[in-house]
């Protein structure tokens, strides 16, 4: 499929579906961060971050930063799902510099070979965390932190996940959940504890100050930090 066509489609959608109420954000109106270009494993994907040329409203720097929760939409068996993920790593690619990135054969063929990165670009590592169903009102329901069974596809769009959805995804029976933590630590490797700390920081900011889950997050953060220090041989 032609990349620009895809872009065009999504752009149309974005224009027709505008959020109806502020309480339940519409997943269709979310900022697009980029599209999937490859994967390292079932839970570990690489997305190419959209630039000015790729869509109407490319993500701003703070919308695709390290630790940003994201989602990818998937329709499975007639039901729309959000596959939840997080940006756990980024990488700059400059095909002309040091020839590190995938190289393009011919300049003028660039737009017909989407598998290759033909220009300076930013890649984001996306680790999958779990899934949820997309509800009628545009929010999510039935969040689960079990390992997602479905695979993403190349060109799937990665959306920035709104705070409210991030909180819903992390809340089961009023209890904060980060049950994907060990998987995420495994995927994110050296940056594992950092990405979890970043996620926790976000969740903290989203929850009311007097929420009892704040203290739970503190304990979890302490544990992760301590483990990381232990692994790095600091303590």
């Amino acid at each position: 499929m032609h990349r620009s066509t895809t872009r065009q489609q999504y752009g149309d959608e974005a224009m027709t579906d505008t959020p109806t109420n502020v309480d339940s954000p519409d997943l269709d109106s979310c900022v697009r961060i980029g599209s999937i270009v490859s994967s390292n494993s079932h839970l570990d994907y690489v997305a190419e971050v959209y630039k000015e040329r790729d869509c109407d409203r490319p993500p701003e720097l703070h919308e695709r930063e390290f630790g940003q929760p994201v989602f990818i939409k998937k329709t499975v068996d007639g039901t729309e799902h959000a596959v939840m993920g997080v940006i756990y790593d980024t990488q700059l690619v400059d095909p002309d510099q040091g020839r590190t990135g995938p190289r393009l054969a011919q300049d003028d063929q660039a737009q017909f070979t989407p598998g290759y990165i033909e220009e300076r670009t930013t890649l984001a590592g996306v680790a999958l965390l779990g899934t949820a169903e997309i509800a009628e009102d545009g929010g999510i329901q039935e969040p689960t932190h079990q390992m997602p069974r479905w695979t993403l596809e190349v060109e799937d769009t990665v959306f920035q996940c709104p705070d409210q959805v991030t909180v819903s995804f992390h809340t089961v029976d009023d209890q904060i959940q980060l049950a994907y933590m060990d998987r995420l630590l495994d995927i994110a490797g050296d940056l594992g504890s950092e990405v979890i700390v970043a996620l926790i920081g976000r969740l903290r900011g989203m929850l009311p100050d007097n929420d009892p889950n704040q203290r739970v997050l503190d304990v979890v953060e302490q544990n992760v930090q301590w483990q990381a220090r232990e692994q790095r041989g600091m303590v």
Binding site: I176, L178, M181, V219
Partner: peptide
């Protein structure tokens, strides 16, 4: 459960465990 889960006396270790699945 790791002893780190006991860090806050007001947060039960089983709560931390539930959070982490």
């Amino acid at each position: 459960l790791p002893e780190g889960f006991l860090a806050d006396p007001e947060v039960g270790p089983e709560t931390v465990a539930a959070t982490l699945g």
